[in-house]
Each structure stands twice: as C-alpha cells, then as structure tokens.
Design a protein around this nucleic acid. Structure first.
Length: 995
RNA sequence: CCGCCCUUAGCUCAGUAGCAGAGCACUUGGCUGAUAACCGAGAGACGGAGGUGCGAUUCCUCCCGGGCGGACCA
C-alpha cells in the first residue's frame, strides 16, 4: 500500500526520543506563530476543487459515463473528418473468458497510439474486433451441453456457440471499455457477422479463381481427441517419452535384385538387412518404403544373433546403433560406398509383419529402398522408415515414387478394420486399437518375431507435437483436405517480397516471419468442425467430382452477406448454387450435389479481417488501407502470418504498412503472468501469485495499468508486479499534486484569452517556456515513433525537475505576493498555464482519465473543446530559437545548486533561505551571464540578496541579510514601505490594490 | 537441439569507446503560505569470464539467467 511507509515513518518519528514537539497531531502551539501568519489572508494562495487524491476506482467510471453519454468517440471522428487518415487495425481477441494482462497491455497500447495520433492531427478510427468462431468455443459449448448434445442439429449447436461467443464479446467489451479505450464499441467487427462470413467466402473465391485452392490427400497434423486437422500455428511441443525401436528389414534376394554381385565380395552369399529406427512403432503398418541418403557411406556388420546375416546402417551411425542393440562386431564391418548403395535403389525388403507383396494400386512399388537428401546422420540409422500417409517428408518421397499416402487409421486415430500384424503363424489384430495402444503391441510382436534388435523397453525423451487446445499428442495423418498452394503463382515469393516492403518494429520480427513463410508447407484450410464458416465446395453424388468454383463461391458469399453462414446448413444445395449449375463431370444437376462438411481454419477467418474492414466502407472512407498492426510477438506465426498470406492471395499486397510487436507480460520472477503459467510455477514450488485484473481494477481503477503500459519499454518482455504499480503510484501523486498546484494558481483569476506569452520577460520564465517547447517537440517525436516510455520520461523530468522543484518554488513569491494583476504575476501564470496545458495534453493518451480531470478544471481558451481528447498536442515554436536561454540557464542553474548547497549549514541553524544574502565569486567566463540576469538572481536562488564579486574561484558566500524582513512576503530589504511599516514596497502596493 | 531477443541502483527507464544519469523507493535535514503536500542532502548499478583498444558499461567471443519462436527428427 502506498501510504503504509509514510504512516510508519511518522509513527517512528513520534516515538523517537528528542524528536521534540515538531511532529505532533494535536493543535500546534499558538504563541509566536501569529505574527508569521499576520498577512496570510492577503496573499494569493492556490485554490482549486481539483482533489489531491485521484480516487480513481470511483472517478474513472464517472468520466467514462460522461464520455459515453456525450458520444466522445463519434465527436472525435467528426472533428477529424477532413484530416489525414491513420488506421490501426485491431487484432481480434478470442471471445471466451475474461480479459487477462496480455489483453490489457495490448488494448491500452493500441488506445495510446490511437489517442496520440488523433492529437497529432490525424483521423484515427478504431474499430475493435473479435474472433468468435472455432474449436475452443465449440468444445466449451459441448461440455456445457453434456449428453443433450446428441439430439441436437448442427443449426442448434451453432446457435449455442453463437450465444456463448456473444456472451464473452459483451463481457470483454465492458472490460476493454473500462480501461479507457475509446472506439466504435457499438459496431465492432465480429467474425460471425453475416458480412464478415461473406468476406471469408469471397476471399476463398479469389483463391479459387487464382488456382491456389485445391483438395488433396496428404498428411496433416491431426488431433484424435478433437478429431480435426490442425495448422502449424495450433501446435505446441512438449517433452514426452516415446518407445525407441531398431527394426531389421531383410532384403529380398530374388532374381531381379540388381545389387547382387555389385557389393563387396565378402558380402556374397550373406543375407542382408536394412536397419531402421523409429519412435512411432504404430506407423510401421503404414510403412511403404525405406529411404537412404544418396551420398552417405553405409556399412554392413554381422548380426550377433544370426550368424548368416549382416545389418546395414550408415557408417556415421554404426557405433551408436551398435550401442543401442547391445553391441556388435564393428571390426568386421564392411563398407558400402555411395556408388555401391546406388545399386540397391529399388531393392525389395521384407516387411516384418505385412506378408503380402504390395498394397499399392500402382503396382509393385512398395517395400523398396529409395534415396532422399533429407535423411540425416545425427540420429537413427541413416535408413529412414517411410510411411507416406504419416509424415510430410514421407509423403514427398511417396509422391516422387508413386506411393499412396496410406494411413489406415480413423478420425480417432484407431486402426481401421483389416489391419493386423502377421508374421508366419503369429497374427495380432490391430483394428480398433489406438496408436498409443498399438505401440507396445507392435514392439512386443517385433521382439517375439525377431525383427526387433534392441530391448523392447527402450525409450527416448523427445519433444513432440501436441494440440494447443486439448494439450494431447497429435499424429500425422493423411486425409483429404482443402489446401492453399504456397508455391502456385509465386505466392510464397511474393509474400516474402511483401515482408521486405513492410516496416517491422522491432526489426528482428522481419527475419522471423520471413523464415516462417519461407519454410511453411501448404496451408491446410479444412477443419472437421461445426462452429465456423463452411468451405464452400460440393461433391457430385453421382460421379464424386469436386465443385469448388470461384463463381459459385461468390454466389454463396452474397447469400452469406444477407443470411450468414447458417444458410449453408439451412438451405437446400440447389438454393446455394447459381442457377444452371451442372456437374462438370457428369452433367448432373445440383440436386445431386452433396455439400462439404468441413469448415475453414479460423486463422484464415481472422486473416481476412482487413478485407472485412475494407468492406465496412459505409461513409466513403477506405478503412482497408491499414497503416498499422500492433500485437504480441507471438502473432508472427499467427495473425500477421495468416493476414499476409490472405492479403497476398486476394489483393497481391500486404495488409499492413507497419507491424509493431510487444513482448509478453512476466511477473517479477520472469514467469509469464497468466493464470495458467503462474499456477504451473506454483505447483513446481515457486513462490508466486496471481491477482485477477478485476480485483486490481475494483480497488484502484485502471489508470495505473495505463501508466504501467506507458512507462515501460514494451518491445521486449515487460514485468508486472504490485511493486511496480506502487512505484508508479508515487509518480502519479507527484504529477497530480503538481497539476493541482498549477490549477490552484490559475483557476481563480487567470484568463488565457487575455494573458499570453507576450507578457513573459524574465529569464526564468523564458527558460521554462523553452524547456517546455523542447519537451513538447521531443514528446511528439516519441509518440510518432511509438516510444511511449520516452514520453513518460519527458513528463517525469518536466514535472519533477522543471515545474515542481524549480519553477513553482521560484515563482511562488510572485504568485503569492504580487498584486493580483501585476504583469510579473500574470507572466508567471502564463508559464504555469502553458506547462499545465502541455502536461495535460501530452499525458492525455496515457493518463486518459487524469488528463481529462485536469482539463475539466482548467481555464479554457475560446474554442477549446470540453474534452482533452478533442484537443491537439501543443505546437512548438521554431526549433533552435530557445538555444541561447537554455545555455544561459545551464550556467545559472549550476550556480543555483552551489547556492543551495552553501545554504545548507545556514538553514540548519533555523534560518530560511530567504533570510540569506549571498555573494557569488564567478570565474570570468561566467560572470557576464550572471550579471546579465543579476536582477532576478535573488528570486531564482530564493534568497533576499545576491552580490556578484569579481573574484573567480566559483564559490558562494552566505550571510544573514541584515535588513528588516517584510512580514508579508518574508523577504529581507534594506528598507520597508512607510505604510504599513512592516511590509516591503511591493507588498504595500499589493495590499493597497486589495482595498 | 537450433534461431532470435533481453540482462545498467530496490523498481521503471536514460546513456556513452574517455570521471555512469533521471524519477520513484531507501536514509536523512528543512519547511508548515501546495500540508496524507512541498524544498534540500546522502547512499546505491553497468549479470559473469575472456579478447581487441592508451582506455570497454559501450566492440568481439564464450558462459549464466530470463523470454519468445522453430524443428522431418522418422
């Protein structure tokens, strides 16, 4: 708590012996104090209703209500109608659950950017969005529905999903608004909007028209529990233990074997076995080939358990294989050169438990040795078990040779009927078994039949792909899916070029996304789910030909624009296709068509949000020309990635000009500050805790979150802790109190329409205005470069050093004691006003509530709007104009420090600094400057008299001023005014003015 | 395993190849006409080890710690 230290300190002070009566809570002793306060009622003390404490938890909702009722966002847009456009496009958060700290960071950052761009003169619309389709919502709904789900139609389940999504849209909308984020909250974009669903299909139509869209059976990452394909962005890796098996695959020495007689003579008459290694024994029933590397050297060494057999592995790996299989006589190993290996190309081997000769439709291509250069020598045997239905590289090899993507498992990753292990008389049924159940069965079978070379209990720890939603292991499985071809019409290369043309902040993001696009496989668009937008394709019920024409998709897009994607399930097929549509294969009518059951990957949906925005062209303004995406750095593989590909396909340009990323929110121990990460760290025995944002907000409001975001360098990971918030709270109070002081000296009698910079003559006043211009110019630049923490630093320095410690202290004399309308006092007020205005406006994007509060209490110029967020940042006078005064004051302020220091012992003797008369002994070089400002030095140093000597050792001499003291302003003079006799001339005049 | 980023005082941030700065926190003095305020003073830091420089917090290499991302690892 911010106040605790303060209180403790006071209590300690009270209890300390000898601390005397100075710290006490009772009435102060009256004697002797009265004369001090004699003229108190005649000085112009600050006065303002602006409270010392923010009381943000109650004050913020009031301000929000005012903004809401006065339609502030709409008024800002109207006010900027003719201004240049700056579009920050909102990345849609997923609409389930309450918001967390990552959302808070992201949304506040965006809001600060939007507000600062607005105040820099741009029209900056902000349309928030939500990602509302997809698996997590569907799963949550299924869980909530329980057994009821069985009897429900697709339309009914989709309706439940919609309700669920919209519930959280409503919740998150309120939570985001509570952060002070201004935007078009009444008309957000939602991926479940009818027109958005139309845009998705329209984008697909463009891909189809361009020939990128195809259906293929190839291995995709498949989650057997969620029963759907997954994109690379939906995969995470976890360390798990997998069985490790070395399996011998005996070469068949039949009449056609080309290698006979071509190998080392010592191998003549020996039986040879290829040795493969795998950690996924369950894929062995799908093995169709073994692949070797074209340039590796291999060796054959005797099998210890079978005198007549030699085992073949890569030479590089022979030793590790020997170790794994319990030892081998490598001294007897015989080399097989790459050239000799070549003669083995196409050599047949005997599959350990599939006795039949071939399962390919294309003839006799399976169970042979082939070559590929993706084989590595860092693990395994250099001979790769290849199952084209269960791995991307395997698939590639299969395509080259003509092997099918054979994957005899169903949606739940269980073997289909007819799959069994058969070796001689030993037969083990696999049908119905899951891949995990199959692993030990297969290992046991291999061991029992002599094909396994290593102990059946061996396993390895490795990181393996898992589903990011259900966290379970996933499999590679070939199934028919819709894809976007990355290398059609140069899509990949054009995307890479577009990355180069985009500005990435911080710059390393460019390489990251470049490498990802460079390496990624074709985009799997199909999801075997309900809650989303259907893939708008059909199959002819007569001849099975696919129908995925662009024209048909455009037609469907129009229907979706009006009715939403529900039309896909609610309408007859004949009502979904353009009139006159016929099967291109057999000329059957659409009444014979069956519709595609899969939906579109949600990453494709959010990837076309820029298109949905462009279509929101209701007022003739192009929201689709987007300047900036601003998200967490994880979106390089997510939304930045999918948006880029979608935009390259649809309009052949990146959807953004600039992409900025922020880091993750970590706690003080460096653990990601999310509920799950913190819980995990806690379960591992680390000392940590998580406080819900709602709890913090209810107690202290959201302005501190905004300050946290504004003060922190967000491009790297950023730390959140209560301690940091408390520290920022201290600064916040300083800012608030300084503003309060400024307001107090302005509110009652200052009119900015009458009093302006023309009144300013004194050096200190000119210096402050110069400093102010400097800060304004730098802050504007910092906002432009999104360096919010720099803005924060500038504000801190301005407020603490220049305004509070220096200027307020120095100007108090004029403000309090001058006649109300004395030009010198007005000049000080002008300076205060300029400072206050600059502070309020520069702070407004960050401290949106407090700046508004200040603005409301401030005297206004004619034409000033009622909200600070409708104003612009201050303009800066010509650059460089302030250099001379800044240089002069560098010298004067150094002297001020010397004087203050020299006054320490003087003040320790119960004197005040105004009781002093000081003599300066400047070096010759500085003397002129001091003399130039001689008249105002006493006030600058807050003493009663300054003498400049001609000695030059840069020291300061302090003496008590011997003249009488003015009882009103407490400064000493050689003589006082005649009437009344105890005040100075200036104060006498001020008193006279009051009558 | 690979790649990228980060590491300056208790906290948040500056900064530079040449005595390391600010604000807050801390210790401490003062004021009581900004008072649950305000004005001073003090103490406190370049993650570690090498290297190249007359000189390194700054440039290079490696390591520790933290984060993010990638991976066909059969």
């Amino acid at each position: 708590m911010p106040h605790r230290t303060r209180w403790r300190r006071r209590q300690i002070a009270r209890g300390r012996p000898g601390s005397g009566g100075r710290v006490c809570y009772g009435p102060r002793p009256m004697s002797g104090q009265e004369s001090k306060a004699k003229y108190k009622d005649t000085v112009n003390l600050p006065e303002t209703p602006f409270p010392m404490r923010g009381d943000l938890a109650t004050r913020e909702p009031e301000i929000l209500k005012k903004w809401d009722e006065s339609k502030l966002y709409e008024r800002i847009q109207t006010a900027r109608a003719g201004a240049p456009l700056f579009v920050l496009h909102d990345g849609p958060p997923y609409s389930n659950g309450h918001i967390h700290y990552g959302h808070i960071l992201n949304k506040i950052l965006k809001d600060i950017v939007v507000k600062s761009r607005t105040m820099a003169g741009f029209r900056t619309p902000y349309v928030p969005g939500w990602d509302t389709h997809g698996l997590p919502i569907e799963q949550a709904v299924e869980r909530d529905l329980g057994p009821k789900r069985k009897g429900m139609s697709a339309a009914e389940i989709r309706a439940a999903c919609r309700d669920y999504a919209m519930k959280y849209v409503a919740i998150q909308r309120e939570e985001f608004k509570r952060l002070g984020v201004l935007g078009d909250w009444d008309q957000p974009y939602l991926t479940l909007d009818k027109t958005y669903e139309g845009a998705i299909v329209r984008a697909l139509a463009t891909f189809a028209r361009g020939g990128y869209f195809y259906r293929g059976k190839k291995p995709v990452q498949w989650c057997p529990r969620d029963r759907t394909a997954l994109a690379t962005s939906e995969i995470e890796y976890q360390d798990i233990s997998l069985p490790s098996v070395y399996v011998r695959m005996p070469l068949v020495e039949d009449a056609q074997a080309a290698w006979r007689g071509k190998l080392d003579p010592r191998l003549e008459g020996r039986r040879l076995s290829l040795v493969i290694w795998t950690t996924t024994p369950w894929t062995l029933p799908s093995n169709l080939a073994i692949v070797a590397h074209p340039t590796f050297t291999y060796v054959a060494f005797p099998n210890r358990n079978d005198a007549g057999e030699y085992l073949i592995v890569a030479r590089e790996l022979a030793e590790s294989v020997a170790t794994a299989i319990g030892g081998a006589d490598l001294a007897a190993a015989i080399e097989i050169t790459p050239e000799q290996m070549k003669t083995l190309e196409g050599a047949r081997y005997q599959h350990p438990f599939l006795p039949r000769p071939s399962i390919t439709s294309s003839g006799d291509l399976d169970f042979r040795l082939w070559f590929a250069d993706y084989v590595t020598a860092d693990a395994g045997t250099g001979l790769v078990h290849t199952a084209p239905g269960h791995g991307p590289d395997d698939y590639k090899t299969g395509m080259t040779i003509g092997l099918p993507p054979y994957a005899p498992i169903d949606d739940g990753a269980r073997y289909v009927p007819g799959i069994a292990l058969e070796t001689g008389a030993r037969r083990v049924e696999l049908a119905g078994k899951s891949t995990e159940e199959a692993n030990p069965i297969i290992v046991e079978h291999l061991a029992a039949t002599g094909f396994l070379l290593n102990p059946p209990t061996d396993n390895v720890r490795t990181s393996a792909a898992h589903c990011w939603r259900c966290k379970g292991p996933i499999v590679h499985r070939a199934t028919p899916q819709w894809f976007i071809a990355m290398d059609h019409e140069g899509l990949r290369q054009r995307s890479l070029d577009a990355i180069r043309a985009t500005k990435w902040v911080p710059p390393w993001g460019e390489e990251r996304i470049h490498a990802m696009i460079d390496n990624r496989p074709d985009w799997v668009l199909s999801r075997q789910r309900l809650w989303g937008t259907p893939i708008p394709a059909f199959y002819c019920g007569e001849c099975r030909v696919e129908h995925a024409s662009a024209d048909t998709m455009d037609h469907i897009a129009e229907i979706f624009d009006r009715e939403g994607a529900d039309a896909w399930w609610n309408r007859e097929v004949i009502d979904l296709v353009p009139p006159g549509t016929k099967c291109t294969g057999c000329n059957a009518g659409p009444d014979k068509f069956e519709r595609e059951k899969d939906i579109v990957d949600v990453w494709f949906e959010s990837g076309v949000s820029w298109l949905a925005m462009a279509r929101r062209d209701t007022d003739g303004k192009d929201y689709g020309d987007i300047d900036l995406y601003l998200e967490g750095s994880d979106q390089h593989r997510g939304w930045f990635h999918s948006s880029l590909l979608a935009a390259m396909g649809v309009k052949n340009a990146a959807p953004y000009h600039q992409v900025i990323t922020h880091g993750f929110v970590l706690d003080e121990n460096g653990i990601p500050y999310s509920k799950s990460s913190i819980a995990k760290a806690k379960s591992e025995g680390k000392k940590t805790s998580y406080i819900e944002p709602e709890t913090v907000i209810a107690k202290s409001g959201t302005e501190m979150f905004r300050l946290w975001v504004g003060a922190t360098e967000f491009r790297t990971d950023i730390t959140y802790s209560q301690k940091i918030l408390d520290g920022l709270g201290e600064w916040y109070r300083k800012l608030r109190n300084t503003a309060r002081f400024l307001l107090g000296n302005l509110a009652a009698d200052f009119d900015p329409n009458v009093h302006d910079r023309k009144l300013v003559t004194l050096g200190i006043d000119r210096y402050l205005l110069a400093r102010l211009d400097d800060v304004v110019a730098r802050a504007r630049k910092a906002y432009e470069a999104y360096e919010l923490h720099v803005v924060h630093r500038l504000l801190v320095e301005l407020v603490t050093v220049d305004v509070s410690a220096l200027y307020s202290d120095v100007a108090k004399d004029r403000l309090y004691s001058d006649p109300i309308d004395a030009p010198s006092r007005r000049a000080a007020q002008v300076v205060l006003y300029e400072c206050l205005r600059a502070i309020a406006t520069l702070a407004a994007p960050i401290l949106c509530f407090t700046a508004e509060d200040i603005w409301t209490h401030m005297p206004k110029r004619a034409g000033d709007p009622d909200s600070v967020h409708l104003t612009a940042f201050p303009e800066v006078a010509a650059e460089g104009a302030s250099a001379p005064i800044i240089a002069d004051f560098a010298i004067l302020l150094a002297w001020r420090e010397r004087v203050t220091k020299a006054l320490e012992p003087f003040r320790a003797q119960k004197n005040k600094s105004v009781d002093a008369a000081v003599t300066l002994h400047p070096a010759a070089a500085e003397r002129d400057v001091l003399v130039q400002y001689e008249a105002e030095l006493a006030d600058l140093f807050i003493v009663s008299d300054v003498t400049i000597s001609s000695a030059g050792d840069s020291t300061v001499e302090v003496a008590a001023h011997t003249g009488p003291r003015c009882e009103r302003c407490w400064k000493h003079f050689d003589t006082l005014a005649a009437d009344p006799g105890d005040v100075c001339e200036r104060c006498a005049a001020a008193l006279a003015r009051r009558k």
